[in-house]
Amino acid sequence: MPSDLRKINAKECVGCRICELVCSLKHYGVINPQRSRIRVYRLEDRDKIETCRFCDNPRCVDACPTGAMHLDDGRAVHDREKCILCGACIEACPFAGSLRIFEEELLKCDLCGGDPECVKYCPTDALTLGALKEVKND
């Protein structure tokens, strides 16, 4: 089950892809949608958002053979050091495209440590802070 840590309302997405750009800039200091942990694909009459949903009982954690994908405060977190790029987490994830491998690295959203750039720069209500906001405000 996806959590409401960050709310994703795909119906509101207009497909500008600014989230991809700020994500890659934040994590790598360069702009490259392929490095982004959130992707947006224009389908015929809608846009599809692909990123980690921070499930309550994440299957990616169960599937990981090395403990690279592990639980931290009940949420899936990825440890790059332990990752062997086997792709088991990608197979197990029910949301296609949320986890990807690009240039020998598994890409998984980390919510920028609690202050996600994608939410900050989203021009519509497609990405908003859910439970994360409450946690932060406490």
Binding site: V14, G15, C16, R17, I18, D45, R46, D47, P123, T124
Partner: peptide
């Protein structure tokens, strides 16, 4: 039925 934007556009 909906608004769409070009790449990196907030006006959509």
């Amino acid at each position: 039925t909906r608004s769409e934007s070009c790449f990196s556009c907030i006006i959509h």
